[in-house]
Simulated scan of single mutants.
Amino acid sequence: MSPDSAQQSNTPKIEPEEILEGILDWVEAESPTTDKDAVNRVATKVEGLYKGLGLAIERTPGRDGYGDIIRARTENATGEKGILVLSHIDTVHPIGVKDGALKIRREGDEVYGPGIYDMKAGAYLPYYAYRHLQRLGRKTNLPVTFLYVSEEEVGSPVSQEIIEEEARKAKYVLVTEPARDGGKVVVSRKGVGRFVMKITGRPAHAGAKHEDGRSAVSELANQIKAIDALVDYERGVTTNVGMISGGTAVNVVARDVVAEIDLRVLTKEDGEELTAKILGLKAQNPDVTVEVTGGMNRPPFEASDASMKLFEHAKACAAEFGLELEATTTTGGGSDGNFTAGLGVPTLDGLGADGAGAHTLEEKIYFSSLEPRAKMWFRLLETLE
């Protein structure tokens, strides 16, 4: 063997089996959003891995029952605007599902597990790519901050402030949410609104004094029709009354009912218009009161020239390794990338693993996507300037 060949054979390579091993270590540590201790066990794993690379770690304690937030910064992550890599470590799956309805397993190219697609695989990839840069003795042009939040699945109520703080210091934001529709990255997302409707009527005996009652449930039926009438698929506007609760007993005209409403819009203007309409809903029965609270939870992530330029750069990086990167036109789901794009920072989302079944008992990634996505991350981190 020639000296050149020996040197080449000793050069560290991106190994998909090694990537999967790291991902599965995180998947094994189940981390439903509302289980602070479980989420913190994953946060400790993240902290340890980045400490092992020599990055400066800032661990912010969670509050309101949520887990801790991890920031890992490269040595040059001071002053100059750099790259924010944005991930979350919480999942929607309860503890124990990995041993029951969603067993961790590999079937050919498909690897199953709770939160593996959304989004522990994606959250692990940039760590692996940065470690590979270090193993090769290479550095990034820009400072990098890796941010791992703990409650994205419920709207990032605690971490939003930190996300926006870090985004203001960034030149680019790369979000590790899962790829869409066969590996596509995300350049725009709908904005998300959340509202609570409280209806108060007048109780009465459903048999003896029905005429004296004013049913909150009947009024809710009227309101649901009004909310459904706001749906406009051509504009990309959807509304959904997803949860309702109320009533006292089957033989009592209901006094109280509560409904939770979801809104999705493509533009800031539509968000303002639909928010006003939902907050302005009035009771159709004059003897019943309707109170609506809430607003936009995440602003729309609208495609911009800057984000499309960032996509073109990622596409070129992926092409070096034979990965043909495409972008979605839009997706209905929100992410923390909505916050950063809403601040005008060039944002590219959906950079995680390819797969399917997010939030379901068929959640999986495709093993074949790990190596090319890791190589794309490697080149993105190395070449952005």
Score class of each variant (00 low, 15 high):
242 G>Q: 12
233 Y>I: 14
297 N>P: 04
120 K>N: 01
195 F>R: 00
254 A>P: 15
264 R>W: 00
203 P>F: 13
304 S>F: 02
66 Y>P: 05
385 E>T: 15
76 N>G: 13
107 E>P: 13
225 K>R: 15
122 G>Y: 06
105 R>G: 01
347 T>F: 04
329 T>I: 12
234 E>H: 07
101 A>G: 05
171 K>T: 05
108 G>R: 14
96 G>E: 03
112 Y>N: 08
132 H>S: 09
289 T>E: 08
221 A>T: 07
331 T>V: 14
188 S>M: 00
26 W>D: 09
380 L>S: 05
185 V>R: 09
74 T>M: 08
199 I>K: 07
176 T>M: 06
316 A>G: 10
105 R>Q: 11
311 F>C: 02
277 K>P: 01
127 Y>Q: 13
126 P>M: 04
218 S>L: 15
328 T>I: 03
249 A>Q: 14
254 A>K: 07
287 D>G: 11
352 G>E: 06
345 V>G: 05
202 R>A: 09
140 T>C: 12
64 D>V: 10
63 R>K: 11
186 V>R: 04
66 Y>K: 08
5 S>D: 15
57 I>Y: 03
53 L>M: 14
283 A>S: 14
198 K>D: 11
116 I>L: 05
73 R>H: 10
54 G>Q: 09
151 E>W: 07
360 T>H: 12
212 D>I: 08
235 R>Q: 10
105 R>S: 09
153 E>K: 03
77 A>E: 09
8 Q>A: 15
53 L>H: 10
60 T>Q: 13
62 G>C: 11
163 I>E: 11
135 R>S: 14
180 R>M: 03
149 V>F: 00
231 V>E: 13
340 T>W: 05
249 A>E: 13
5 S>Y: 14
344 G>K: 08
342 G>Q: 03
291 E>A: 08
188 S>C: 01
185 V>C: 11
293 T>L: 03
50 Y>F: 14
260 E>P: 03
230 L>D: 07
293 T>A: 10
256 D>L: 06
380 L>T: 03
138 R>N: 00
61 P>M: 13
168 R>F: 04
125 L>V: 00
93 H>V: 02
203 P>R: 13
272 E>G: 08
192 V>R: 12
